[in-house]
Amino acid sequence: MTGNEGADHAVALLNIGLLSILFIVAVAMARLRSLFAIVMLSGIYSLVSATWFVALDAVDVAFTEASVGAGISTALFLAAMVLTSRTAKPEKGATKIVPLLVVIATGAVLVYATIDLPGFGDPGSPANSHIGVEYLARTKAEIGIPNVVTAVLASYRGFDTLGEVGVVFAAGLAVTLLLGFGERALGSSRSQAAGRPRPKEVSGLDGKDGQSDD
């Protein structure tokens, strides 16, 4: 007991509420067929999980989830959705038994595994007793910046972060190589707006790709 039972109960209530919203949104996403609604719900899911991360004191993770999950993922899903149909195909046949059993079994195993996890905020847990303590103790003397998360991310684990940036860059490169560079939009918008005078500055931008569309 921490002596703050009232606050503990409030946090527990908050957690239960946020997790219930996540559950409801997830079920709704699984049942819906309209892709637009699913994309919007996934943005809501990300925002609610970001809120939950704040409740867990993981502010940096919450911020990343809000900007990446709710922000850019939603926008990219919308952009991808414009290229495809608006609704998913309905499932054929009745409820499939084998996938349901697999999901239930996996869920049961995961729930069983959580029994061995240390309690939330447990000072004796591995995350709070080994290297985390070291980072907290050393950052002020060695790095000299207040945000320990940035110190770990940018300095202590700078090489990891370089790899992460490389992954982001490689993802961008792979998508552009697969889908094209996107300059086609300049060419086709020019041909659609045939009635208007063509903007001169466009002509230098698009290559042969845009010309072939005309």
């Binding site: 991808a80 290229l83 961008g172 490169l173 560079f181 996107g182 939009a185 918008s189």
Partner: peptide, 22 residues
């Protein structure tokens, strides 16, 4: 990091959105 992430994300969006003009 800022430049790599902003540039990559913009490039990914262009790759998707650039396939339809409007």
């Amino acid at each position: 990091v800022l430049m790599a992430v902003a540039g990559s994300m913009t490039a990914i969006f262009y790759a998707f959105a650039g396939r339809v003009s409007e």
